[in-house]
Structures are given as C-alpha cells and as structure tokens.
Design a protein around this nucleic acid. Sequence first.
DNA 1: TGTCGGCCGATTGTGTGCAATCCTCGGCGG
DNA 2: CCGCCGAGGATTGCACACAATCGGCCGACA
Lengths: 230, 230
Amino acid sequence: MTEPSTSTTRTVDALRELILRGELQPGERLAEVDLATRLGVSRTPVRSALTQLASEGLVDIAPNRGARVVTWTVQELEDVFDLRTTLEPRAAALAAGNATAGDTAELADLAERMVGVGSPGPRQDLDVLAELNRQFHDRLSTLAGNSALAGALSGAVHAPIVLRNFHTYDVASLRRSLAHHVEIVAAIRAGDAVWAEAVMTAHMRNARAVMVTAAQAAEPDAPDRSTDRA
Amino acid sequence: MTEPSTSTTRTVDALRELILRGELQPGERLAEVDLATRLGVSRTPVRSALTQLASEGLVDIAPNRGARVVTWTVQELEDVFDLRTTLEPRAAALAAGNATAGDTAELADLAERMVGVGSPGPRQDLDVLAELNRQFHDRLSTLAGNSALAGALSGAVHAPIVLRNFHTYDVASLRRSLAHHVEIVAAIRAGDAVWAEAVMTAHMRNARAVMVTAAQAAEPDAPDRSTDRA
DNA sequence: TGTCGGCCGATTGTGTGCAATCCTCGGCGG
DNA sequence: CCGCCGAGGATTGCACACAATCGGCCGACA
C-alpha cells in the first residue's frame, strides 16, 4: 500500500515542506529552473508539483507569470477559521460516536504530552506542540470516519500560519487551548457528541481570536482596521 | 480579471465537462495519448490537467498506472452529503446577512424558474433543473462571502452523481426540494439567518434521503461497508 | 493441468528544445 | 519632469523524444 515514489511526488513533498517550514516565504517567486536545480530534477516534475500544490492551495499560479507562495490576507484567515469552526466541531461530534477505548487512550496521550510541552516553563517547546496539535486534529478528523469531511479539513488547515501559530498565543489563550484538548478527550470518552462539539467550537473561537490579532499586528499598514496598536 | 486561456486550462475545463456530463464514466481509464489526440493537444497539458482534476477529486491517479474517473461508493456518497449538510446551511446563514435586494431578486428568479421546469408536466426538464440548481447553490455560496467555505463546497459538490441527480427524485421529494429553494429565498429576503440555515438543513437531508436510496438501488449487491477505510 | 517465470507491447515518467508571452529598462516625446 | 513606447532578456507553455515501469501473454516445468 506504500505510494510509489516518483520524482514528482518527492518534489511535491519537498516543496510543501519548504513552504510549511517557512523557508519559502509567502509571496516569494517560485522560478521553475531555480527549483529544479535546487532539487536536482528537471523542470517537468517541478511543473507537475507546482500545479498540484496550486490545487492544494499552497501556491498561486498565474499563466505566463509563474508561481508564488500564497499570501494570506486577514480576511482570508478569518474565512479559514470560520470554515474550521464549522467543520471541526462536526468532526469532534462524529468522533465521539466512533471512538474506541484505544482511540481515546491515544488522544489522551497526545493531549497530555501537549500539556507537557505547551505549559510555560523551561520544558516548553512550541514547535513540538504545533506538531502534536496537528496529530491531534488529524486523529480526530480520521476518527470522524468521513473521508469527504477529512479532505475538506485538510484543505483548510494547510495555511502555513495555522500550522506555526502557537508562537503567537498569549499565556491565557494557550492555557485555554491546552485545556480544550483535554476536555475534548473527556467528552469523547463519555461518548457525548454535543459536549465534544461545544468544546471544539470554543477551541476554534479561541484560536481565531489569537490568530486574527496576530495577523493584524503583522500587517500594521492594513487598511481600515479600527483596533490597532496602543 | 479574466483568466488567461491556455491549453492547460482549456483541457481542464474540457475534461471536467466530459466527466460531469457522464461521457467519461466512473472507473473509465483515461489514457493520456488518447485524450491528447481527442482534444487536439499534446500530452503535456493533458498531464497537467489530470493532476489538477485529481486534486479536485474528479479523477484518481496511480503512479505508473494512469488516471481513472473516480468511482463513488454508497459510503462516500453519504459522507459527501453529511459534509454538505454541515457546509450549505452555514453558507445560507452567511448569505442571509449579506444579500442585497438585487441578490435576493436574482435568487428569487432562479427559484421561480426551477419551479417552472421542475414541476411534473409537459414542461418538465430535469437537466435544465439541475443546471439551475447548480447556479442557485453557487450563487448562495458566493453570497456567503467566505472564499474558504466556497472552496470546500465546490470540492464537495463535484461528485457527478450529485449534479445529475434530479432524475432519481420521486414526486414528493422533488416538490419538497423546489419548495425549499423558494423558502430559502424568503428567509434570505427577511435577513433571517436561522431560518435560512434550518431550511437548508432540511433541503440537504431530503436530498440525501433520495440519493442514498437511489444509490443503494443501483448497487444492490453492495456489501456492508461499515469497516471501509480509504 | 495448474502455476511460475520471463519476454514484449503499451503506457507513463522525465528531460530538453523551441516558440510565445511577460517584465524590465532605456529612449523619446509631450 | 513625467509618462508612453519599444527592444531585449528572462521565464513560462507546449511539443516531442527517450527511458522506466507496468500488465498481459506464452511457454516451460512440476
């Protein structure tokens, strides 16, 4: 069942990694020959990879004008969070009805480790936290048992800023976020879909509030924003 | 703002049209040279188009084994409808808060024409109805003003069977469906997001009931897919 | 007779060349 | 001084050629 590895698939993975890690910054021009020499392949798999990443929503391609890493406006970021606020609670509710004891244990383990590396102090590591968070939500998405829902979610979460966002959390929001994961596990263990859905909704709204604030701070010249610096 | 027309984009549109119209049937093999000669281009834009359609979810590509039109199991169909039941009501609610009088008039016109061509009788034309229905939901999705939501929805609606489904409606369900559209317009005109959301939810559940029944009838030997994992 | 192994046609994956298009920069006119 | 216009360089879009891989057929052997 292992996906055969072709130059194209490797190029896709490499580019996605570069973009998600931020080594290719939003708005940056992606010249085909440049990437090709950099990755040691010809232009053909690079082109193929770019079109694929384009439909994943990671790059924008304008005919005859090349590809660029997607840039996110505050509006689009809010849109993504609104979408996630619609989808993730549904996934949590479905997961609450499907999870076995083993599944719940896995989620509990993840949530516990997140508290470990996420709590303020010397052992805090926000990059590890981000990875665990991704695993947690992925696991939940899979547990929901709806492939279409999972696909829609994975498309929405790709926004690089979403994946590397814990650095922007203030202490109170971060504590809430960690507590949410633990509570979601509790709701799922209890098989309570309504409870899981409600906590996940709160989780998303909390994340959205942090995110939007950070994005506005990062775009100080953003037009027409009533709340700005103090 | 018009997208420049390249061979690749034309090929994408042509293939999508062929698949959605059913001229390329689910499971059918898509040989590159065959499509290339058929569309009068070389293999390069065809390959590019296929990868793009693959990430739109219309074709499956297996490395070294070519592309096929996607096939839909009953389970996946139910998943798509569950997803739409999550997304469309949200879109309707957002649209209710955004629609201008002009928007409402357009939607009302569409709904009225749908009643015209959808009602049983000599003037019934289910293919036109399907097209109007697509326009109606597209319009609503745009009115919601959330590009991420619109993207997720367009991905979910692509299932060919979803677009050509009115032929499977029984009379009562079809009447309900037509009435739903009219009622959604009324809710939007009133700016009542809760109302719009509720009617849309009913609309989706009605459609799902028809669809699943039809699909099960078409796949009488479908085994219990409860443990399906893709 | 059933199964295994290797050959061969067909199809996809990749590299490269050429034409078309776009962006930049310098020159000219208002 | 500013804006328009055209030439040149650079980059993408497309086509074709070659290499790699897959699936099926046929024959040999147990």
